[in-house]
Design a protein around this nucleic acid. Sequence first.
DNA 1: GACCTCACTGTGGTAGGACCACAGCAAGTT
DNA 2: AACTTGCTGTGGTCCTACCACAGTGAGGTC
Lengths: 257, 257
Amino acid sequence: MVPDQASTGALDDAVDPADGVVDAGWAPVTKARTYELVLDRVEAQITSGRLRAGDRLPAERDLAAALGVSRVAVREAMRVLQAMGVITQSTGSGRDAGTVLTAAPGEALTRLVRMHVLLASVGTADVVRARIALERESARLAATHARDADHALLAEHLAVMDDPECSPETFNDRDTEFHVAIAHASGNRLVAEMTTALRNAMRATLLERLQGEDDFRAVAARLAREHHEIHDALVAGEGARAADLVEAHIEGFYARR
Amino acid sequence: MVPDQASTGALDDAVDPADGVVDAGWAPVTKARTYELVLDRVEAQITSGRLRAGDRLPAERDLAAALGVSRVAVREAMRVLQAMGVITQSTGSGRDAGTVLTAAPGEALTRLVRMHVLLASVGTADVVRARIALERESARLAATHARDADHALLAEHLAVMDDPECSPETFNDRDTEFHVAIAHASGNRLVAEMTTALRNAMRATLLERLQGEDDFRAVAARLAREHHEIHDALVAGEGARAADLVEAHIEGFYARR
DNA sequence: GACCTCACTGTGGTAGGACCACAGCAAGTT
DNA sequence: AACTTGCTGTGGTCCTACCACAGTGAGGTC
């Protein structure tokens, strides 16, 4: 069986780990879709070091020909890679046109988390605990790794949020950016990206809650004050205190109802 | 700098923050790719509640016709959703065949993290810190949420790792499953999935390190002992201690060189 | 009547071809 | 020298056709 495309160089690979062997030694034959084979090849090129961030992939048509698959298969693989934030694509000719390997996990993570929050696959309470775990670490690291530029950026966001005229939308956006800025100041890329994704995924939810507040200004003032305290702890280089403040800050807002 | 929208509706909700307005009021026209429009429609259906986990999407051909796009566009959107772990697809006819909404972020997260580790987008040191942050939380929660079945599963993994005949491969797999089991026992789905993804993404790296140990048995014995201590803390319901032990456990192994 | 066989139908999977829009580049024109 | 124009390579989109698979039910066989 498995005629599986003429003309494919479609090789095996397929290292299915630990699958319940139902009948003595009869593995169920891997029926990998073609685009997955393409994905494997690309990953192999990266693993072997022949392909690294910044490099340009062959044109879709060329890659299809080289792998012996149709362009559709290549395109679907590219779609997946794009969804993971591994490549960026653009039209046109020239050196930088086409498909380029660029590691940008941020957006991809955000979309992933947001979709699963929407699907109720994960509850908001879970997201809150995860945020706390990550942002504690962000704050702790940021206290020692943040530079003057980072502090200045944070101060800028604080100033906007201090403005009594500030709308819930603006406040929410700046709040997001404030937390994200701390995450990036931590120097830990992964923690930063995950923190960003979580905060961004909650953006709509938090905005709704802010807009639904009876006394938005009072809440905003309280949150802004807590932000200032966190900022002060960061500037003072007190990581542990910053972490505790962040935890109280996040938990405090959610616990309000 | 490419704007590179993600997920803007067909219409212009594009709120590009701080982009140099070149000519008075001339927004550069959002040129969303068609498959992104399909994605938006699907997300809208989910947001509105008309579509939820477990539901079946229309057949690709029907969906294409309904949205007025080609089947290719629909397929590419499906590929993205699949890569995010939002849908599963299967051939055949019948009620459960076709495309079904199923929230399974695990694999998707794992692949995403693994790819970015491979691309050196995030360093292993960063992954370790992220793991610690998350697994501390996992352990803390598991100490109060874990049930007898969870404890039994953990004990089973421990028994295998205690076996002096245990190979590095087996040990590594069981170690992974041990940490993953704790994460799932925490009751926090998001933390569990992220923990799993991180541990899985490091699987190959850790295996290499284990195999490269001068005295594998001694290292395995030490790790196994630490596992037992963690397990004991969990059974005793001492979350804080379990968290500290986990941190020391993870940090200790990485710090060895 | 109970059971098996087999064609039918609806589903995703794949391929190949065609055309479009876009961006860079080079040759030609002013 | 500066501008214009057409060429070329890239992803973006669509269409059409066919394949593989799994459930369903009609028909035949015992």
